[in-house]
């Protein structure tokens, strides 16, 4: 081995990195998608504000699906263990994703969570994203479908204020319709806004706590 002569000169140099960090996430998402596809696994990304009813809806969906298919849940927005237990009670595997103080899930976190599942024995993965209607829009996870949940308690302008998040959504759920009157929010008006923001989106009103409209949600998703 020849020893390099050490030249003591100060040197300024450029590192042409050209690295797109958002694209890195997109590539990882494609990887997740491929990995799930190879095992015939379908994935659903569930988005919505904190408290909009994501966990409630997912629990109700799992109840109806578990006899027909093998469902697993990736829980990205569980602030308490009560939430995780609520889903686990349904007898399906739940992987908790620790996001720390993150405002969104990203493809890398989902990649790691998927590694904890036996994909060969899973048919559907439901991912509960972090309660936020803005940031997750920028981070695809590799899911096949995206469901966005709004609830009437968030006021009448949720759709118009957050158009970005609906761009890739196939189904929009308007939850807590039982509170619409008290909130003086028109469910039809909200549905109209949603269709304005994303033409062709399937809008389903629900009272997830009572399980009302959940069958329609499953139908809209083709499940």
């Amino acid at each position: 081995m020849r020893k390099e002569p050490i030249v003591e000169t100060e040197e300024i140099f450029d590192i042409e990195l050209e690295e797109d960090l958002l694209n890195r996430n997109r590539e990882l998402a494609e990887g997740n998608h491929k990995a799930m596809h190879e095992h015939g696994v379908r994935a659903l990304d569930v988005l919505g504000s904190i408290g909009s009813g994501k966990t409630t809806l997912i629990t109700e969906m799992v109840k109806r699906l578990r006899d027909r298919m093998n469902v697993a849940v990736l829980a990205g927005d569980l602030t308490t263990m009560i939430d995780a237990e609520r889903i686990e009670e349904q007898g399906v595997p739940v992987v908790q994703i620790h996001t720390g103080k993150e405002c969104h899930l990203d493809a890398n976190l989902v990649h790691k969570a998927l590694a904890e599942l036996d994909l060969a024995s899973v048919d559907l993965v439901i991912i509960e994203n972090v309660g936020n209607l803005i940031c997750p829009g920028e981070f695809p996870l590799g899911a096949d479908q995206r469901l966005v949940m709004v609830s009437v308690t968030e006021g009448p302008y949720t759709a118009l204020k957050h158009p970005y998040i609906f761009a890739d959504a196939e189904v929009a759920v308007i939850n807590k319709v039982d509170l619409a009157e008290a909130m003086e929010v028109s469910v039809d008006g909200l549905a109209e806004d949603l269709r304005k923001v994303k033409p062709g989106i399937k809008v389903v009103p629900t009272n997830a706590r009572e399980g009302e409209g959940v069958d329609e949600v499953l139908r809209a998703l083709g499940l």
Binding site: E11, D14, L17, L21, N23
Partner: peptide, 13 residues
């Protein structure tokens, strides 16, 4: 238009 790219780094050694 959908990127967040590190294009170049100038450094000294």
């Amino acid at each position: 238009g959908d990127e967040c790219t590190i294009r170049n780094i100038r450094a000294r050694r």
